[in-house]
Amino acid sequence: MGLTLAPLAARRFGWTSVAGLQAEIWPEDHCLSQESASGFQLLLNREPPMARAASGSGETSLIIVPGIRAMSLGCGNELLGRMQEGAWVILETGAGYSSIEEAKRQAGLLERFFGLKVLPSVPVSKSRGHRYIAYSWPLPRLVRTFEAITPIHSNAGEVVAHLGRQAVCAKKRVARGGLLYLGSMLGPGLFAEEPEGLAVGAAMVAFCRMTASLEGLEGRQLKV
C-alpha cells in the first residue's frame, strides 16, 4: 500500500486487511505522525500474504492513531463509537511534542472518553540511565524510547510498559473494544525496523486480531 501525506481532515491514511483484521491508520498532518504512520503501515505490511488472504468481515477491528498531538472532541467521539462497535484502538501520543494547551486538551479527552489518566509529558533524561521502555505485555521486550514520555496513572492490571518506575503504556477494555495507549512513541522505531519494536507491534496486532475474532463469534452467537 502506498504512503500518502494525507492531512487529518482527510484522515483515512491506510486501510489494510491482514489475517482477519481490518485496520485503519489515522495520522495527523505533521511529520512526527506521518513517520509513525509509515512505521505502523510497514508493520501491517509484514503480515504474510497467505494470512492476508484470509481477511474477515470487512468491519474495521483495529484503528491506529499515530503520534497524536491535537486530539479533537470529534476524534474522541468517533474513536469511542468505533470501540462500541468492537474496534481496538492503538493510540500513540505525540504530546511530548505538542503545545501545553494541546497536551492538556488531549489528557482531558483521554480521561473523559476512555477513563485514562495521563500525566504531563517528561523528557527522557539520559542521565537517569533509562533508555528503554520495558514492556511486560504483549511480549517482555525492551524498546527504545523516543525523547519524551507521557506517563499514566492507571490500574496496575492495565499497565503494560514502564520506563523506570513510571507507567507509560496501558491496555484497557472500553465498551466492546479497547484501547492500547502508548505513552512512548513506537512508530518511528517500526519505521527504522527496530526488531524489538516490530516484535511488540506485531504481538499487539495479533492480540487485536484474536480479540476481534472472538468478539465476532460472540456477536454471532448473540444473534442466534
Binding site: S38, V124, K126, R144, P188, G189, F191, A192, E193, E194
Partner: peptide, 15 residues
C-alpha cells in the same frame, strides 16, 4: 547522536 539511533536516522534521512 547518543539519543537518535543509526537505523532511525538512516530511514528518516533517505525518506
Amino acid at each position: 547522536t547518543e539519543d537518535t539511533p543509526y537505523n532511525e536516522v538512516y530511514k528518516r534521512t533517505v525518506g
